[in-house]
Design a protein around this nucleic acid. Structure first.
Lengths: 144, 144
DNA sequence: GGAAACTATACTATTTTAGTAGGATATATA
DNA sequence: TATATATCCTACTAAAATAGTATAGTTTCC
């Protein structure tokens, strides 16, 4: 029942980029250094975010990555779901799940659906901008 | 971010026992047959429930297991937490977690705490009796 | 031209998951 | 008291997931 490093690093990566001035490029190496994460591993993670269009990349020297949209346009749910896959506690309640032969009588699925809704309710209600605001609060820069 | 078979089977096992007449013993073999789960694997799972005092066991011929308390005294959270361990999405927010060096500035932990609270809110609010009621509803035996 | 940076694919060690296997111990019943 | 039927206990294992490494290639700025 754990979120893997893939999702957790992706979230930190996106917060890192969101903390930068708009459209400023960050090289992967710099992000990896700031976040203290292996750059070769981050490479795989940012590739997913890039393919999904969440970040833009510029190749070559002085290249790097930047957010394609504003921080308020990304929810935590978008980022975790992209990198982790479905956040549902069991695969049988996913939309693309094959029909389970126990579905007629199964009541545990009701529990799992409630858990799923609760998780999605949280992660879809938090944007990168919220995280930036919390970061400011932690640093003592209180926002109104 | 998935609940493993251990927790899922434990839940089905407890529902199975709760569906039986009070204090009636069920042999592991019978439970395994009814639930269509490997009995040798269920053995390991029910051993945890037994050690925790959630079920009582009677050894020898005609022995078996039964619930030590009433269905309304077991929450889904108790059962899942016992068999799965902590349901938190990251280990760093657990009570027994060692202090993380990023905790000063980390804002993702706020997200994870909210997810954790949401999950616990669901699983601690559902008892085995609720599941029995839902089962009756599914079977067309509507309860008032 | 060369260095910096992204892209792509393959490989690997470790851990977790989902069981199996085999025997020891206890007890109801014949 | 013999025996069948249970629980109890420990060890083992195949497969998958996790968390990265490694290597080679492509693009572009200077």
């Amino acid at each position: 029942m754990k979120i893997s490093t893939k999702g957790r690093y992706a979230l930190r990566l996106m917060i890192d980029l969101a903390s930068r001035p708009k459209n400023e490029k960050s090289s992967l190496k710099d992000i990896a250094t700031r976040q203290n994460i292996s750059d070769k591993y981050l490479e795989q993670i940012i590739a997913m975010l890039n393919k999904a269009g969440y970040v833009r990349s510029v190749r070559g020297a002085q290249g790097g990555y930047y957010l394609s949209k504003n921080p308020e346009d990304y929810t935590v749910g978008m980022i975790l779901r992209l990198t982790e896959g479905s956040l549902s506690p069991v695969s049988c309640i996913d939309d693309d799940a094959q029909v389970c032969e126990r579905s007629e009588t199964c009541v545990t699925s009701i529990v799992y659906k409630k858990i799923n809704d609760a998780i999605n309710g949280v992660v879809d209600g938090i944007t990168l901008q919220d995280l930036l605001n919390w970061q400011d609060e932690k640093n003592g820069n209180y926002v109104i």
